[in-house]
Simulated assay, not measured.
Amino acid sequence: MGDIVPEHAPEGCPGTGSEHAGKSDSCAGCPSQTACASGEAAKEDPDLEIIRNRLSSSRVKNKILVLSGKGGVGKSTFASFLSLALSAQEDMPETGLLDVDICGPSIPHMLSVQGEEVRQSNSGWQPVAVNDNLSVMSVAFLLPGRDNAVAWRGVRKTSLIKQFLKDTDWGELDYLIFDTPPGTSDEHISLLQMLKGCNIDGAVIVTTPQEVSLLDVRKEINFCRMANTPIIGVVENMSGYVCPSCENCVNIFPPSTGGAQAMCTEMGVRFLGRVPLDPKLSAIVDKGKNPFEEARDSAAVKALNAIVHNLQTVLQNEN
């Protein structure tokens, strides 16, 4: 990213590294004005060096953000399936999934590890194991119960994200997936600032075929470009419905403007593939089973494996 923008900065903030930091008209009334004007705000947080060491390329080979322009597109579902698909590859890559959706932590339920607890060791927090080569970290593991609401302001959420990055001992990973909240909020800005210098591979952006979803994805793409975050590609989720009887796939969200693939051509980003709604997959997940072991022939699993292949090809070509 460019100059760091302080938490709760006003519109038009020049950034902490600017010669106008704390001195421009837009700085008036900002709680960080004095620190910016004195240069204190521009000093790097010492925790960032710890994060860089935790997530160095020698420890975590590939780091991928999963983003969406809006809620309801199946972003967390895709992130959990992507993690399962990666971990199910023949070479059994070590895979981690960090749930950064602080107010809506649904990943543990999707991976059937709800109710587990995070354990502390001398090397840091130990993520919860899903299987032999997939582990997950989420705020859900830190809550008293699954129905407890997380009603936190931005500063507290940012603090927890930093603690996840700084204190989680993933060991050595081939892939670390970050499931983020929808939109372009405090969590995204803070996460990207904390990951600066960690050589993240980029973002996979999830959408559905309708234009109302694609409108917000265009904003997400522009946010990534503004933040100097590489875009690996776009995935069109809920791309048709697979009939459980005849297995034909029909559109339930008509792509009135050509869907995600047309938008990718328009905006100059990669299209990674489509994932249909598949009741067979949902039934297996609800039973707590791994669809990549139990439903290898389902349309959704085949689509997800094709997306993983495209993703790995991009990573290999760019590394």
Rank of each mutant, 00 (worst) to 15 (best):
residue 81 F to N: 11
residue 120 Q to F: 13
residue 253 F to N: 09
residue 214 L to S: 00
residue 135 S to M: 10
residue 268 G to N: 12
residue 36 C to M: 08
residue 175 Y to K: 02
residue 168 T to L: 00
residue 14 P to H: 10
residue 300 A to R: 00
residue 171 G to N: 09
residue 143 L to G: 01
residue 200 I to C: 03
residue 201 D to Q: 10
residue 259 G to F: 04
residue 317 N to W: 15
residue 244 P to H: 06
residue 9 A to M: 11
residue 230 P to K: 10
residue 239 S to Y: 03
residue 289 K to A: 05
residue 12 G to C: 07
residue 139 V to D: 04
residue 218 R to P: 14
residue 116 E to H: 11
residue 90 E to A: 12
residue 165 L to N: 01
residue 120 Q to Y: 12
residue 121 S to P: 04
residue 168 T to F: 00
residue 283 A to M: 05
residue 151 A to L: 15
residue 47 D to V: 11
residue 5 V to Y: 08
residue 272 L to T: 05
residue 121 S to A: 06
residue 184 T to D: 09
residue 27 C to Y: 01
residue 98 L to R: 00
residue 280 K to S: 01
residue 172 E to C: 03
residue 142 L to R: 15
residue 151 A to D: 15
residue 318 E to H: 10
residue 204 V to N: 04
residue 308 V to Y: 06
residue 271 F to A: 04
residue 60 V to R: 05
residue 202 G to C: 06
residue 49 E to W: 10
residue 150 V to Y: 06
residue 245 S to I: 14
residue 45 D to T: 04
residue 36 C to Q: 02
residue 176 L to Y: 09
residue 284 I to Y: 14
residue 114 Q to L: 15
residue 282 S to R: 09
residue 84 L to H: 04
residue 76 S to P: 01
residue 166 K to P: 05
residue 214 L to M: 03
residue 240 G to T: 00
residue 116 E to L: 09
residue 106 S to G: 03
residue 108 P to D: 07
residue 225 R to L: 02
residue 172 E to I: 05
residue 256 S to Y: 11
residue 113 V to K: 12
residue 173 L to W: 06
residue 87 S to E: 09
residue 250 V to Q: 12
residue 266 E to N: 08
residue 223 F to Y: 09
residue 286 D to R: 02
residue 239 S to E: 04
residue 201 D to A: 12
residue 35 A to C: 09
residue 106 S to Y: 02
residue 8 H to P: 08
residue 272 L to W: 04
residue 279 P to A: 12
residue 279 P to M: 15
residue 269 V to N: 10
residue 296 R to W: 07
residue 22 G to D: 00
residue 89 Q to R: 00
residue 293 E to Q: 12
residue 219 K to M: 13
residue 22 G to H: 00
